[in-house]
Design a protein around this nucleic acid. Structure first.
Lengths: 237, 237
DNA sequence: CGGCCAATTTGATCTGGATCAATCAGCGGG
DNA sequence: CCCGCTGATTGATCCAGATCAAATTGGCCG
């Protein structure tokens, strides 16, 4: 079995001890600002599958993820689902143009977040242009990921989708300091399928084939990449 | 034949006379800032199909579109193309996390832009938090559009894709003041197909069927929606 | 006005991934 | 230790949209 993805083990209490600070929007804050940020934020815990917020609700809060993994998704009226992303520690959920959430978010495993009222957050950023620029960087990074995902959804084959997902996910885990041999996959096959615009059967079959072809081994809670360069090649072209 | 999409007819010369200012990032600027913005920007014209910039190039400039329509796209090594968006007057091309363009942009019809060096732009925004917040709003809006497009690409049928595109495009045209009966489609069927993750044949067949079913009429350079509510229903579900 | 070239439409056929349908595996509880 | 549940895998078949292949249309230029 594989450990939960959570580089920080607590961050309850003080922002100055937050282990994901360097990854998060808070990296742009000095000691004084950090104290103020701490004053206006609350740590909240979510159990697996609990909702952080739901599309269509009034967006009263913004969130910075400090531990665990969340799925972000949109639904069609008939229940078809598109996972638009997975949020990891350090990720910021709050770049939005309207006063309502345009997507839903829920905890995949055990999740903790820093939650701030949108109002307090807006006020906080207004006179802190360094912080504002940091938010901008986060938004730009998100936008780039979204554009890459559009290319994947619109123009890649099932095989390329699954390989790209594994390579991209591994890279994101590495960025938050998780460099274990085995790629942890805390999300379900259904989550992966809904992220890649495929069915659960196609994801399963493709992974099984990759295993048969000795590109990887499927293990409990993840996969172990045996041939990263082959995976990278599939993901690239 | 349908007029070109260009609510502004010139904007050569002075930013203060720019007819798309209220739509653009420059809306956040007062007279003094506008003068400075004008000093560091240049108006550039592009002929149809000319490239504004290309993915992978060093991103020396940011652009604000003032007239015409541009296609934004990404390519796979084997030539498969995904159009990630169409830029209209007022749209800002410059929210990016790296020093290289992550997508290509070229003029569909005759296009004019305000171009600024990235360096000057970065310096300009640094001490103007109102402006920075405006950029933020643009980034958030872009991100929301991208997320909606992911849902479309991953989970909608061909029919829903085409209907959604028409409804969404009409809405965007309305936002820039183009409220004519006929929806102008300056982009080619191939552009539309590459935007929707379909083939040109499927787009053509679907439009033809919509016409047969009296939902719309195909005209030179666009379509005339006869039954907007039916189109909206298809786009929603 | 006619001929050419590119874009679009239309038709026939094929296929990757969806759908429908059983198993199978892991695991928590009694 | 076994049962029952949930998620995953595997198999058989189907079909929406892709691919292959002609027409057809519409500018545009001489």
């Amino acid at each position: 079995m594989i450990r939960t993805i959570s580089p920080n083990r607590a961050s309850f209490g003080r922002c100055s001890a937050c282990t994901v600070r360097s990854l998060s929007i808070c990296n742009a804050l000095d000691q004084a600002d950090l104290a103020e940020f701490e004053r206006i934020s609350r740590h909240i815990h979510f159990a697996p599958n609990e909702a952080l917020f739901t599309a269509g609700q009034i967006a009263r809060s913004v969130h910075s993820l400090t531990a665990g993994v969340a799925r972000l998704y949109k639904l069609l009226p008939d229940g078809r689902r598109q996972v638009i992303g997975f949020a990891l520690p350090g990720d910021f959920l709050g770049v939005a143009p309207s006063d309502r959430y345009s997507f839903s978010a829920d905890a995949i495993d055990s999740v903790t977040v820093c939650r701030l009222s949108r109002e307090a957050f807006t006020h906080f950023i207004e006179q802190r242009s360094h912080f504002l620029m940091r938010i901008n960087e986060f938004a730009a990074r998100e936008l780039k990921l979204a554009q890459e995902q559009m290319l994947l959804l619109g123009r890649r084959t099932a095989e390329e989708k699954v390989a790209s997902f594994l390579v991209g996910w591994r890279q994101r885990l590495a960025q938050i300091g998780d460099e274990r041999q085995t790629i942890a996959l805390p999300m379900s096959r259904q989550d992966i399928a809904d992220y890649l615009g495929l069915t659960i059967e196609t994801v399963s079959r493709t992974l099984t084939r990759f295993e048969r072809e000795k590109m990887l081994i499927i293990v409990a809670g993840g996969v172990r990449l045996l041939d990263p360069s082959r995976a990278a090649a599939m993901a690239a072209a």
